[in-house]
Design a protein around this nucleic acid. Structure first.
Lengths: 196, 196, 196, 196
DNA sequence: AATGAATGAGGGTTCATTCAT
DNA sequence: GATGAATGAACCCTCATTCAT
């Protein structure tokens, strides 16, 4: 990739992250292309040169974000933390964008891509999330942390919704003090750990 | 309330439910006042006569929805189902709007009312959800279903996120077969029910 | 039709004629909706309230124009001028919009409506122009002005292209002095009237 | 002209014909410089290097087209076909771009060059079309095909409008079966050839 | 109280044209 | 001389809101 290509790629990335940031803060529909352009320091038309559509921009910004999320996710799973720590990190580590698709995007993608690429999201889960996750859960099972009768899907579901909740600033702040309780419930359930 | 007032109230309710329905299906920002007016069979101006703003309309539509949700919630709690059934119903009964505030509204409210009424949602939780929920959880504790060392907030949190997930059509469909597993995890955790 | 309707109808007509006028002078694509609005003394949005689209506006403006043209045409045919005079009037009377569809519209309609309503224009010819014209030509034949072996289509074709040419300001001016010659050719051809 | 110049000239011609082709198919205003560049396989800027303006490009493309038309026209006139055949060919030979200026250009030129070069078109007629045509018509007269009392302008006018009509695909197709009738009218008029 | 009509402001998108390499 | 990148201006269109009846 030569200098041209590189600068182009860089600028594209700049626009993408600017857009993504704005989308996350103000929602997708409320952010105008003009605003993105202003904040990214380029002309509106430049954005169109790179992305053709607002739609496409959202789409690519979404993919970009998914990619980032996935590599972070993989990193955690591959790390040599003890299993419960990995789980905790997955759920509570705010920096981690991972696993879960942010509701803002989710809703947008669902609304706009129902027929065609609605399965896009399913594909991402099937091809990216699940494979990595299954490694993690296998580890959990083999080390006796996970009831083997429980399906992987159900576990993923819980991790997802927990992660999802943590993504929301307001919730995150409020439940941070509850970290211990939440983890406890996750591992031992409402009934609690009362084997003697 | 005389006939006039009644008809007025009725019309207001009509507009409210029409609006709410559209908001849930197409998102809040995508629904125009004109569309609501058309579907409710009134003029746009009538909507303004009743609600002053699109903002206010959303706001009232939100409150209306919360109220409905709460009475349904209360009903379940007050019923004489066994405790685990109540929990299941809370989480999986699709008809139940209850407890949880729909993400669409949530996001909107958060975005628009940050400073002022951001606490509105907190107030709803504090004044409506929690009191009812605490009754339910007290029952759970007294009947030995809940580890007493776990905070009510944490339990509410779980119920909330589970409920929240169930609100999303796509998720609901996919996890319905997982009902048993999900309940199991909720009561006994990842580790599973393996006492002595 | 009550007062409301009437005023509405009138305003619609105003916009229509304004638009038509501008289209004729500056071409269709060069005229912006904003310009029409300005010249018609209404807001741009009002135009959209009435016509939904620039496309639709053009379309209706086209139909409006065709209608006008047809009634003028009919009037001439029904008048009690002698046959050659009718022909002359048809061809040279500038006020007459008649018969022929203006090239500007023609091209636009053709370009945009190829598949669907491309036949729209043909339909207009078939259902409106031809019936009236056939009356005229029948008269011409019966009075010995027209060689009966010549097809009606061929005559219509000539009238059309002559009329068409007259619609163009620049040509009209230049050929007005040629009126006699042109008529002569039309009736007696290049070879001229040199019988016996 | 050296190799450089030649290649330059060739590229210019390529752009010109590409542009001309697109103009004829989609209209002048609807074709963007970007589209021409893409189809001609050059950069947009290259087009600007050669033509300075879209305007100028149109203009040159117009001249290019006129030149071609004229040489074809001349060829026909100079050929040794019998006079009526020449006329027929002039009118009906589709390949012939000749004499007549295509309405698309005509309108555009008229609209943009009204004051200044509006006479450009007149000049073309005066300096190019008429001289050639007059040769043809002289031939027609001398051979008894043309009533000498008819002005050359009037004849040119007829040929023009006939040619013009033939340029329009839709019309061409429809009147091709009428060839004989149209020619007949052209030579003998409506009244028909009824000398005994 | 209710409506049809009207509007200012703003959003996405396209285009002819210029800049920098 | 040729190109990829960038842009200001303009265009079509939508929307929440107000006016007049």
């Amino acid at each position: 990739m030569d200098g041209f290509q590189q600068r182009r790629e860089q600028k594209k990335k700049d626009i993408l992250t600017t857009a993504h940031g704005l989308f996350m803060t103000h929602g997708i529909q409320k952010v105008s292309v003009a605003e993105i352009a202003r904040k990214a320091g380029v002309s509106q038309v430049t954005i169109y040169n790179y992305f053709e559509n607002k739609h496409k921009l959202i789409y690519e910004s979404f993919l970009y974000y998914v990619d980032e999320a996935m590599s972070e996710f993989e990193e955690t799973v591959d790390s040599d933390l003890p299993f419960p720590e990995k789980i905790k990190q997955l759920i509570f580590n705010k920096k981690q964008t991972a696993i879960q698709i942010h509701p803002e995007y989710y809703q947008y993608m669902m609304r706009e891509y129902t027929a065609d690429q609605g399965n896009l999201i399913e594909r991402i889960y099937a091809e990216k999330t699940m494979p990595i996750l299954s490694i993690l859960l296998e580890e959990g099972r083999s080390k006796g942390y996970i009831d083997p009768s429980i399906s992987m899907e159900a576990v993923l579901f819980y991790i997802n919704i927990l992660k999802d909740a943590m993504q929301r600033e307001e919730i995150y702040e409020k439940v941070l003090p509850l970290t211990e309780d939440i983890t406890k419930i996750f591992f031992y359930g409402l009934v609690g750990e009362k084997r003697e």
